[in-house]
Amino acid sequence: MSKPYTPPMPLTWWNKNTAYRLFMLRELSSVFVALFVLELLCFVSQVGQGEEAMDQFIKSLDNPLYLLYHVIVLAFALLHSITWFNLTPKVMVIRLGEEKVPDVLVAGSNYVACLVVSLLLWWIVKG
């Protein structure tokens, strides 16, 4: 006779191993990135309403809880970027004849591009 047993999928499946946990964190990171984008949009809108509104917005952020929140957001943003940068070689396969361009180069080019853009922004902001 045949009576297959189908193992149940526990609700805590994502806590089964480190790889799954890291994956969930990566997924979660997008929430924080999105929240920060919303905050940035608010900020832009305040800037549009004049210097006073902008100052008030900045002042409203001036407390330890917000600082902590921003540290967390930064950590998730970094996790998000790093994990995705490291995954690019899987998505983007570049071949030169029979040889595949090494993963390190593909992933590395992301980091380099990120650094260049960041420096450029910093240069613009600092004027």
């Binding site: 790889a19 799954y20 994956f23």
Partner: peptide, 8 residues
């Protein structure tokens, strides 16, 4: 969802 463990 690109867990990526299949390749590991």
């Amino acid at each position: 969802t690109f867990v990526g463990e299949c390749s590991v």
